[in-house]
Amino acid sequence: MHTLFISLQSEFYKSRKTLAFWAAILLPVIICGLITFGFYSGSEKILDRHYPPMMLWGNYIGAALNVMGLLVMPFYVIFMAFSVNNIEHKNDTWKMLFAQPLNKFSIYAAKYLYAVLLIFICLFLFATLTYLFGHLLQVLVPGYNFNQFNPSTVLINSYTKLFLSSLGILSLQFILSLVWGDFLKPMGIGFIGTIMGIITANVGWKYAYLIPYALPTLALRITKVKKGGDPLDFPIFTQEIWTSLIYAAILFTIGYFIVTKKSIK
């Protein structure tokens, strides 16, 4: 446990000056900022539609969630899986890492956990900034009725689903980036996977849920459907989420065996 903690600490120390780390912070700030700016500058048009508070939040949250869930999220996850491994490939430091008196599982698990943590931070910031910027909009444009509905449950549920549904992709891409030191192979497979995932999820293929890349889209689609009813009442642990978690667990274990067998030539 101690080894895991120091490995995690070292992962943070190594990456704190890299784009991978800052992307987790910049991505939500930029996307939420742009959407908020849109709602601010186009406030007259939106006010004309006379949305009830819940619908207004729904539109506002959906703007970030849809961009994120459909397109940015899979690529962001692919990029995270790539960058935590690439830092060792690029500097040829695997041999140094595995020559330390630390058990291999901790080194591997710390890397994986760090990628999970970065994705968590990113999505946590998305939810928090959406909430805060919504209230900021209320102050800037008093005509809005953001203050008449509390969106925290919807935010927490949606982003929790998005987070959990992305773990399957993460584990798969993590293995690809662990095995291959180059950028093109994991990125290429991830790109094709994501396109395939989006298509299969959108045409409603029966087995789309078996493709890890389709899971964020599937998870969010159900959220949207349910929004017509009571938005506070959609389940988090649906089929997509379980599939994602099972994929994550299996691939995480396979990854560990790859690490233990990894010959450092």
């Binding site: 120390y13 190594k14 500097n91 430091t93």
Partner: peptide, 24 residues
């Protein structure tokens, strides 16, 4: 071993501090 294993984006001192973290 072979070429020294160094993180290029970190300074010399940070490379050593990273090792200190790993070794306690």
């Amino acid at each position: 071993v072979e070429q020294p294993a160094i993180y290029g984006h970190l300074s010399g001192k940070e490379n050593l501090i990273n090792r200190c973290i790993l070794l306690g």
